[in-house]
Structures are given as structure tokens and as C-alpha cells.
């Protein structure tokens, strides 16, 4: 993606919708909070629905960031800066989205497992899931199984997400899933796991519904699994 050094000189308000969207995606890529906040306000003033700003500009921009992170073009600091810029836009959109009562696709509780305090990936997943229309309850870092159980009881989520970045903390996901099983909560909760050292095989071995390589994949898989669940419920209702 072109890095536009002259973005300081660009008057965002003078750009047409298409140019502005593309410029904002560039600004998101470069982690420019103020520009994202300004661009978001301009699009809203022009009558864009907040959901449209979110999907077509911010989520799409972060998708591009995600692809370049995966391919090694961007590294952690750039991703963090982009995520911060997205937050600047989201903070303007969130209250409006709540007002418009946009329907929620599903609910997710997400947290980093016990012994682990890495949270950048988890935060990114939370943000992208929110961007995609999920309600996300983030229970933070270093979570023992009790925290997950409490959150499930309180929020009754469709999805439980667990993150781990340390080889030592990955196996704890298995402990949480076993406990869900014992408490008869497993079948009603979709379990997604992620974190750099994990892989698909590990996800299967601990009994998760899916391992997700990154935030974009998480959104796709979450939507797909929720859809499957809805159609299963419909079928069993018919029978």
C-alpha cells in the first residue's frame, strides 16, 4: 500500500466519498488517530450510516493491515498503532450504533488464559469482532477457569474465546474446555482459540470448535459457526 507522506496537506473534507474512504484506509494503515476521527466525523456528517463507515472503511482498513501483518510487511508496533487509530473511529461510532439498535450477530466472552498477560492479539480480535457486529465481553488477562465460568454464567455468550501466547499457558485452554464439559456448558458454547504459537492441530487436541489464525479469520469462522448453530436449532425445532 502506498504510504502517503503528504497526508498532512490533504484536506479530508475536500475529498469525495470514495477518495476519502481510501485516504482513511491509508491513514489507518499509518496509525493516524486524528485523521481517522476527522474522516469518521466527515462521513457521518455526509449522512453515512455508522455501520457503513465501520464496515467499508475501518474494518476493511484493518483487514488490509491484518493481511500485511500476516505476510510480514507490518510488525507488532504498526498493528498496534493501526488498532489505536481504529479505536479513535470506533469511539465515535459506538454510541451511534447503540442508538440505531443495530442487531447483534452474537455474543462473545474473550480472555487470555491463566499465567499469560499477552493481550495485543486478544484486543485486536475483540475489536474486529465488535466491528463485525458481535457484542464482546473482554475479561482481560491471566484468567483462571473460574473467571471464564463466571463470565459465561453472567453473559450467556454464544462464543468463548481464549488467547495464549506462551507455550506454558497454551495447555490451560484444555483445562477450561474440560471444565466446561463437566459443567455441561460445552455443547452450548462455541469455543474459539488463538495466539501465535497455536495451530489447528492444537485446537483440535484441546477440543476447541476452531483455532483461528488471525482476527479476520476469527470473524469469518465465528459467523459461520453461529449460522450453523442457528440452522441446527431451526431444524431441531421443526423435528
Amino acid at each position: 500500500m502506498a504510504i502517503d507522506d503528504s497526508s498532512d496537506d490533504i484536506n479530508l473534507a475536500e475529498l469525495d466519498d470514495k477518495e476519502l474512504s481510501l485516504q482513511m484506509q491509508d491513514d489507518l494503515y499509518d496509525g493516524l488517530n486524528n485523521e481517522i476521527a476527522e474522516g469518521t466525523s466527515i462521513l457521518l456528517d455526509r449522512g453515512w450510516h455508522p455501520q457503513k463507515v465501520l464496515n467499508e472503511v475501518l474494518v476493511e482498513g484493518m483487514r488490509i493491515v491484518g493481511v500485511d501483518f500476516r505476510d510480514g510487511v507490518l510488525f507488532v508496533p504498526e498493528v498496534l498503532l493501526s488498532a489505536n487509530a481504529m479505536k479513535a473511529g470506533m469511539s465515535l461510532l459506538k454510541p451511534l450504533l447503540a442508538e440505531t439498535g443495530t442487531s447483534v450477530i452474537g455474543k462473545m466472552v474473550i480472555g487470555t488464559v491463566k499465567g499469560d498477560i499477552h493481550d495485543i492479539g486478544k484486543n485486536l480480535v475483540s475489536m474486529m469482532m465488535e466491528g463485525a457486529g458481535f457484542e464482546v465481553i473482554d475479561i482481560g488477562i491471566n484468567n483462571p477457569v473460574e473467571n471464564y465460568l463466571m463470565a459465561i454464567e453472567e453473559h450467556k455468550p454464544d462464543i468463548l474465546g481464549m488467547s495464549a501466547l506462551l507455550t506454558t499457558t497454551m495447555p490451560y485452554m484444555g483445562t477450561v474446555i474440560e471444565t466446561l464439559d463437566k459443567e455441561n456448558l460445552r455443547s452450548e458454547t462455541i469455543v474459539l482459540v488463538g495466539g501465535a504459537p497455536l495451530n489447528e492441530e492444537f485446537g483440535r487436541a484441546v477440543g476447541a470448535d476452531a483455532y483461528c489464525r488471525d482476527a479476520a479469520v476469527t470473524v469469518e469462522i465465528a459467523k459461520q459457526l453461529i449460522e450453523e448453530r442457528v440452522s441446527q436449532h431451526q431444524q431441531s425445532a421443526i423435528q
Binding site: G31, V76, P77, E78, L80, I117, D119, I120, I141, N142
Partner: peptide
Amino acid sequence: ESLGIDRHPQLKSLYFNHY
């Protein structure tokens, strides 16, 4: 340098806020 804290000092608290 590797985590960009020199170029973007605001990242320090994002990395280390739970420490």
C-alpha cells in the same frame, strides 16, 4: 527499537500496562 517504542513512546504503556 524492535517494538517501536523509540519511534512511538505511547506504545510503552500498551505493551507494559499489565506488568
